[in-house]
Design a protein around this nucleic acid. Structure first.
Lengths: 203, 203
DNA sequence: GTCTATACTGAGATAGAC
DNA sequence: GTCTATCTCAGTATAGAC
């Protein structure tokens, strides 16, 4: 690829910076109020631009939300790939869950759009979202198969159940209630959830 | 209390029947589309009455949804109380979870309104809902303490974590995904979730 | 108490000047 | 590309006749 002239590079960079700012603002509002309660006016105000300008970047509220979710899935894939090579399969799954829980506690969006049927429908209709979700699920699925081969997972639990359960823990309201309770710090919350997920409630 | 005259009894009965029909219709729509996507027009159409008439029974959409949720919590309390006397504490918790999962598979509403921040806010502001939720939570909490005394729960998991986890499993999207997958029947889905919840993913 | 008709509001999306 | 102003529509809630 030939290098772009400096002027154009600069302009493009500003455009991309603003787009990132829009995604960040949407991410905050999405995590805070949820998809339905978040209006395009709110997003514009949060970014500090006019509402009309949003539509020069994203053609609809749905497309904007989908872009946020695609970015999150991409980051999650990178986090999984970035784990130390020697990590065992089951520990990779635990580490992945820990990473997503910390993301949420830091104000992130749940991986599953289960808080809004409207959003869920929009995402499932989005090509880019479904592609990225498939990529990530394939990668996690491979780790699950490894863990299975090592005998690290309960034999009577299906692979699909394990995969869905990991996704579901990322949007588990238990996290919000514990956080709201205020009697545990973030680290303790994450460890309770990871322990509960992998070892269960029963002794 | 003195007995009402027959005429009045009849009229009251009709009124209550209609009210029950409204609650049933709302329950269906709530479970199907979720709170935000469900309009008062939809409810009226589902019941077969005019929208204006709804407001003679419930003063707002929020109050109507709260009434549905209170009914569900009351039924849940009854289900817990109705378990055989000799059931052990841990088995009572498992039975309760099974009951709620079967309710959802039969088209019921999740116990936690985590699918809509708007609904959640409305419910937490509702006196009757919070009262009933407290009653039920106290009752479940007592069973958790029994199970704890028997050493049936992991020692490092907090009581509040156990309680929230049980509530959270009733709105777990894993159930919806497994149901949508179509490769498992209802009984198998329930057993995977109960096993996963109490015994964890790890072998 | 039930109906039809309507007021009012919030929000997604667009138009047109600069 | 960004702004202000506006269109359009859905949805909650209410008014008024019967």
């Amino acid at each position: 690829m030939p290098e772009s002239p400096p002027r154009k590079r600069l302009r493009q960079s500003q455009f991309e910076q603003r787009e990132a700012a829009i995604l960040d603002a949407t991410n905050r509002l999405l995590a805070g109020r949820g998809y339905d309660a978040m209006s395009m006016d709110d997003i514009a105000a949060e970014v500090g631009i006019a509402k009309g300008s949003l539509y020069k970047h994203f053609e609809s509220k749905e497309a904007l939300a989908a872009a946020v979710m695609v970015r999150l899935l991409t980051q999650t894939e990178a986090a999984l790939s970035g784990l130390p090579q020697q990590t065992s399969a089951i520990d990779q799954l635990k580490a992945l869950l820990r990473w997503t829980l910390h993301q949420r506690l830091a104000g992130g969006v749940p991986h599953l759009p289960s808080t809004s049927p409207a959003l869920q429908q929009a995402l499932f209709a989005s090509r880019s979202y479904m592609d990225q979700l498939t990529r990530l699920s394939d990668q996690i699925g491979a780790v699950i198969l490894q863990a299975r081969a090592h005998g690290s997972l309960h034999a009577h639990l299906r692979d699909e159940f394990v995969l869905y359960t990991l996704y579901a823990r990322t949007c588990d309201p238990t996290l919000d209630f514990l956080k709201a309770g205020g009697s545990m710090d973030d680290e303790a919350i994450v460890e309770q959830i990871v322990a509960g997920c992998f070892h269960g409630l029963a002794a």
